Simulated scan of single mutants.
Amino acid sequence: MRSLILALSVVLTGCSALNPAEWISPYQLDIPQGNTVSEESLARIKPGMTRSQVRFVLGTPLLNDPFHADRWDYAFRLVRDGKLAENTRLTLYFNGDTLARTETYGLAKPQAASEPAAVVVAPATQ
């Protein structure tokens, strides 16, 4: 009987090292928050556009600060499995009713039309 209790205690002690909470977790939803700004829509934004033109392309800004009436912020944040997967921000500055400049964080800046596109030449195969 003693050997059975000893064997049982050794087995149960060994199983306590396997913590199910470490490898089993509840499902967590992906949580997108904010305005999604694609590279195509960002490329369509040009200085000199009016506020209504910008709103037509990008939609209503997420943050419209009453203390900074000439600034619009488009923020986007995506959390997957409880971890931050994507965090982007586009800030537009207006001078009166026209767009003066843009600032981006986490977004690829669009290539200007005057800049040549990068050309990749693959070696010829035989």
Score class of each variant (00 low, 15 high):
E40K: 15
P47D: 12
A69F: 00
Q53C: 03
T125M: 06
Q126E: 13
K109E: 15
C15R: 02
S25V: 12
I45T: 09
L92V: 00
L62D: 05
T104Y: 01
G82H: 02
L62H: 01
D30A: 11
I5A: 11
D30G: 03
T88Q: 13
E86Y: 00
V120M: 09
V121E: 15
G34I: 08
N95R: 12
V119C: 02
G14K: 06
A43I: 10
L90D: 02
P61D: 09
D65K: 03
R89L: 15
S114V: 13
P116E: 14
Q28N: 04
L4T: 02
A122L: 15
V79H: 00
Q28W: 00
S3T: 10
R71T: 10
Y105Q: 09
L8P: 01
E103Q: 14
A17S: 05
Y93A: 08
E39H: 15
S16P: 00
R55V: 10
A69L: 04
A85E: 09
G14A: 10
V54I: 10
I5D: 01
V10H: 03
M49V: 08
E115Y: 10
M1Y: 10
P116M: 12
P123E: 06
T102Y: 08
A85F: 04
K46C: 04
G82Q: 02
I5S: 03
E22M: 08
E103K: 13
A124L: 12
L78A: 03
A108T: 10
A69R: 07
A108R: 04
R80P: 02
E115F: 11
T102R: 14
L6D: 07
G96M: 10
L99H: 03
S114E: 09
Y105P: 03
F94I: 07
A108D: 09
S38A: 05
K109P: 11
D30M: 09
P26T: 06
K46Y: 11
S41I: 06
S114K: 05
P66E: 14
V57L: 11
G59P: 07
A112L: 11
L12Y: 08
L99K: 04
